[in-house]
Write a protein that binds this DNA or RNA. Structure first.
Lengths: 208, 208
DNA sequence: TTATATTCTGTCCAACGGTACAGTATTTTT
DNA sequence: AAAAATACTGTACCGTTGGACAGAATATAA
């Protein structure tokens, strides 16, 4: 994995090197021919075509973080919309840059806290009104299960098929079935549907 | 800085200890008297009063991360709105927990990539659309169906098997299947599980 | 009156789900 | 040290599910 810093004029090289000694610098016109999948690209918004470039880079299977001298909501949204995995102030502290790299390398997304709450702020009220039924005695059910069984139960509760659960937990489908059988027995349900309903705390019909 | 894990019953202690050997466990009623500013509090949503508790903890100058067994958009928004700095699956891998700790300790915000893109993906309008869609689940979906299809959908959503639905509606199992196929097609779901989740307004998928 | 929508039914088949046997390895408890 | 619990995998069986073809009767709309 290589860190690439894409700027118009090679600015701020010393900062990049302080954060990532092995980092490479590149320019808008030559970056695309040098990248390898999995690389991490830091793209400064002073590159006029940054949105299109970011999109192409993302399509090429690299991770893109946008650096802006003047961060703002709209630009952040645009960055994320292009598939960028981070949006940071260009002059963020070196430690922060390292942190961002860690996060995006681990499938996370980085945006600053104020920014996030700002971006989400508008829709809070509407959402809050809708956040009502939070009763969840699902906890008691889950506590009857072993740790692994809980993982399986929760995956199933999200609608996953056995094969998908197996992939998620990196075990065979057979093992998923074994866990599920144990789950059904412990919770006294006959199948995954009843399990969902039980964990969703809806009353369910056993039979008729 | 101390890591505190707040649960209802001290569940999953082994996981916390694997991630943070020095972590302390606490319960809803005694956590507030023990914390010091700068501490990191992991709060599980099975604690019924987690939103209010989170808010008070944030006000006390500690960092709060919300852990949920069944992550979903609304809950995530609520968590962030209370001032939480992270929102993670309770059963996230130990490595992920460590990662989250690093991020929030450095003034970052952690939400999963999928969630964030779901929330931010596209634009504000898209966000609002999505929100609206999530806000009125069953009614809106059901109105797309014919009367008979609705009956079938509702029966299935209560956990009934095809045979049971057939008995309830006094039709053959074959007809139930026919209705179901139409339902799946209209609502764009692949099976009865996803149908339940859709009608239960809980179509969040864990992991990838 | 032709067309469309709705409701109902049939057979066949591949894929999925759950169980009945099984077993091994590791850790925890007694 | 023995027993129990946990995690994992294998083969085989059978019922369920959903789709691929289908077709037929009735009501409503163009």
């Amino acid at each position: 994995m290589t860190n690439w810093f894409v700027t118009t004029n090679g600015d701020l090289k010393s900062r990049w090197e302080a954060a990532f000694p092995d980092a490479q610098s590149a320019q808008e016109h030559n970056i695309e021919s040098q990248i390898k999948p999995g690389d991490l690209i830091w793209l400064v918004t002073t590159v006029e075509t940054w949105p299109a470039l970011a999109r192409r880079l993302v399509a090429a299977n690299v991770t893109v973080v946008i650096l802006s001298y003047m961060p703002n909501d709209r630009e952040a949204l645009k960055a994320l919309d292009q598939g960028a995995r981070g949006y940071v102030h260009t002059l963020a502290a070196v430690d922060v840059l390292k942190q961002v790299a860690l996060v995006v390398a681990n499938q996370g997304v980085w945006v600053g806290q104020e920014l996030l709450s700002k971006v989400l702020g508008g829709s809070f009220k509407a959402l809050q009104q809708r956040t009502e039924q939070n009763a969840r005695p699902a906890a008691e059910c889950l506590s009857l299960l072993t740790e692994r069984e809980q993982s399986v139960a929760i995956a199933v509760t999200s609608g996953a098929a056995n094969k998908e659960v197996a992939r998620q937990l990196d075990i065979t489908e057979r093992t998923v079935k074994a866990h599920l059988s144990a789950i059904f027995k412990k919770l006294g349900v006959r199948d995954r549907l009843q399990l969902i309903l039980k964990l969703a705390n809806n009353d369910y019909r056993v039979n008729s």
